[in-house]
Design a protein around this nucleic acid. Sequence first.
RNA 1: GUGGCUAUAGCACAGUGGUUAGUGCAUCGGUCUGUGGCACCGAUGACGAGGGUUCGACUCCCUCUAGCCACCCCA
Length: 441
Amino acid sequence: MSEKSKDKLPRLLRGMKDILPQDQSQWDHLRQKVKAFATSYGFSRIDTPVLEQTSLFVRSVGKGTDIVEKEMFSFVDQGNEQVTLRPEATASIARAFIEHGFVNQPKPVKLFWMGPLFRHDRPQAGRQRQFWQFDFESLGEAHPVVDAELILVAYTIVRELGLEPVVQINSIGDAQDRERYKKALVEYFRPRRNQLSDEIKKRLQRNPLRVLDAKEEEVRILVQDAPQIVDFLSEEANKHFVKVLEHLDELDIPYVLNPRLVRGLDYYNRTVFEIWPTGDDTGQLALGGGGRYDGLVESLGGQPTPAAGFAIGIERLLMKMREANVPIPQPETPRIFIAQLGEASRKKCLKLFEDLRRAGVSAVHSLAKDGIKQQMEIANRIKVKYTMILGQKEMIDGTVLLRDMDNGIQETISFEKVIPEVQKRLERSVLKANRTNVPYA
RNA sequence: GUGGCUAUAGCACAGUGGUUAGUGCAUCGGUCUGUGGCACCGAUGACGAGGGUUCGACUCCCUCUAGCCACCCCA
């Protein structure tokens, strides 16, 4: 260390996080559950590459969006190709849908996706530059029941993971509806221009919908009386929205009609929704969101394909689960430690370790250590149930000492019988021990 | 991209414009070449980076980097 200056040491890139061994059980637990949900709701898994053509995201997410304007990890590769680390999943899924002829499958095509995404934002609470999402997408059906099913899935997953989500929902209509609405919005604000900040004025010009989610108090007050997009929906879009809500009522899913909910990606139309944790009324830490994107596949060159989907952020989910002290099953810890004494015993013990593994018993050893005391300390530290001791004496007798670490009782067992004996005892102790759940921590 | 706060060992925290920067936990070793939870002893290991002010900077100033928080936006 003294020789090397510290700035030469390799370091984590900004906004990147290692997922350490002690956090893996939470991640595994969560991912496993999400996978099980996907299967039970009939969504098939699809994985897409981390790297895609830059144009894919520019065309789908939209040129004027923050994601494309300032958050993409883009570069030119050695083959002079413009590439981007995926900032979201839906575009890739739509690309795969087109590329692999999913049009020829029965509709809707229900897909499940899980993986890391990359956005070059400034890190803060619940935000990293590499983060995980899982996505559920349903392609090929325009019917509102599809929207409702997706909301059901999103809501249920979050709920069954131990949180109390609230669905925020809105309809942003179809393209023509939005055009008429934008005009009305601009007109509404025109006589009130002097009350607006420069930033808001700019938004009003570039993307009037953005004014709706402004955080400034004065603007929010104005927004309350501003025209609402629901009043500008075409008859079909309105019917569609009403049907989605009827389904949610039937399912007893609590939702909040949020006329100010607009989403930051260009491909959305009609139904948009977000999943907020209870207690968050700003949406600052939305767990996820989604909506309908009927035009996306076609705009990327595929057949006209109505579709909808949602994404949920895994780190945010974990964060909220920790905050809420949601219990998580303890990871399996090893129950057996192998302690050895002497060169011959060491050889025997590595073999024993492997034999145990083959018998389905995962043991821990520290074969590199010499002193039995050190080994016992380690066994104690990792809280195994039994320690198997093989010293010179046992080597001569062809036995193993089996020490119960809770009460210190030791028994001599013949070497041949020790594996079945250990299996038997572990089974018994598993039955006895009531599985304890500890909170995410 | 903008703003505020912060940066001392693996972790949690002390500390000072002036010899060798402390403590607890952890790690390694010893007391203790056949037995853990205890105790005692010892060792390893840090002032984020670069520049400036100063006789002297870990301490004061600037820049950078990173972290946290907020804005923008989103997961």
